[in-house]
Simulated assay, not measured.
Amino acid sequence: METIDDPTRLLKAKILLIEDDERLGAITKELLDDDYRVTWVTDGTAGRSELATGSYDAAIIDRRLPDMDGLELVRMLRARGVSLPVLMLTALSSVEDIVAGLDDGANDYVTKPFQFAELDARLRVLLRGSTANQRSYAIGDWTFLAESEEVERFDGTRIRLTAAESALLRVLCASPEHVFSRQELLAAAFHPDDVLGTIDTYVSYIRQKTTKGLIITVRGRGYRIGAPEE
């Protein structure tokens, strides 16, 4: 479970970095952490586990991992029909290697050594052109459509939310196992000078529009996203 020191970070894109070079991985994670939430693993096995169980907006994968070719992970994703944007890192810079990687499902390539500014720019392009910025969140039988600020019922009916309601729901959906205190939700979705009762008010608004089980009250602690079934 992700530890949340600053709940506003939940609004940043979540990136999986798979890089076995300890120095390069540490530097890349440190630099990317200013703008993204970065999880760093050092081999393909750990990467496969993260890709299977984690929810990421993009992945940066080294081609030469100690236990496999990074392209195996890309092939796995595409075979499962997963369209997660993937940026490959590689020392293999021949046209044939790059074409093979793109043909196998990678979205872009950066060859080593690289300038961080180029990596960051290419990552921004991938995120901008993907569905990551238009993502939806399953909440039991319901779906939150973040970009359009709507909640879709199990029967396909869509319910419009206000910007404030949508911001609150997005924070809750970003870490579904976390119980958010009112202070965390206030800092992430509203103005920190607002009163704590603002959270209870907007939770009530969302429940009235949708269903009570969409947001669960954890007594004495706060709120977390639910999993209502109809």
Rank of each mutant, 00 (worst) to 15 (best):
G226C: 02
G197T: 07
R80M: 03
V41Q: 04
Y202F: 08
D21M: 08
G44D: 00
E230A: 09
I199Q: 08
I15H: 00
A167Y: 03
V195M: 07
Y137P: 04
D21A: 09
S55Q: 14
A59Q: 00
A132M: 04
A106C: 04
D104Q: 10
D67Y: 02
V110I: 15
L10M: 01
T198V: 15
K212S: 15
R124Q: 15
D43P: 04
Q208I: 13
I206S: 01
E149G: 03
G81E: 01
L168A: 02
E229G: 14
R160N: 07
T90K: 05
D69T: 14
G44S: 04
L123V: 14
I98F: 05
E96Q: 11
G220C: 11
R48K: 15
A146L: 06
A227P: 04
I4K: 06
I206G: 01
L51Q: 05
I27M: 12
A79S: 05
R48V: 06
D5Y: 08
T157D: 05
E50N: 11
E152Y: 08
R124A: 15
D21G: 11
R128V: 08
A106T: 07
A146R: 08
L77T: 00
L196F: 10
G197D: 08
R182E: 09
S93I: 12
C173T: 04
M76V: 09
V82Q: 06
W142Y: 13
L161H: 04
V195S: 13
R78S: 01
S49G: 11
R158V: 09
S94I: 13
V38D: 01
G140L: 08
L123R: 13
L17P: 02
E147L: 13
T201S: 00
R219V: 10
G213L: 11
L32P: 01
I216W: 00
R207H: 05
S136E: 13
G140M: 10
K29Q: 15
A121G: 03
E2C: 09
R207L: 04
L127P: 00
T53A: 03
L77H: 00
L16E: 04
A58Q: 01
A100F: 01
R64I: 15
T143N: 04
L127M: 01
R23V: 13
I18Y: 02
V74Y: 00
I159L: 12
D6E: 13
E184R: 07
L196M: 12
L145H: 12
H178R: 10
E229N: 14
D104C: 02
R124K: 14
L24N: 11
E118D: 11
L185Q: 11
I27D: 14
R23Y: 07
L145V: 15
T210I: 10
E177Y: 03
A26R: 14
E19R: 06
R158M: 07
A79K: 03
I216Y: 02
R48W: 07
S175I: 00
D33R: 12
T211Y: 15
Y202I: 12
D120R: 09
A146Y: 03
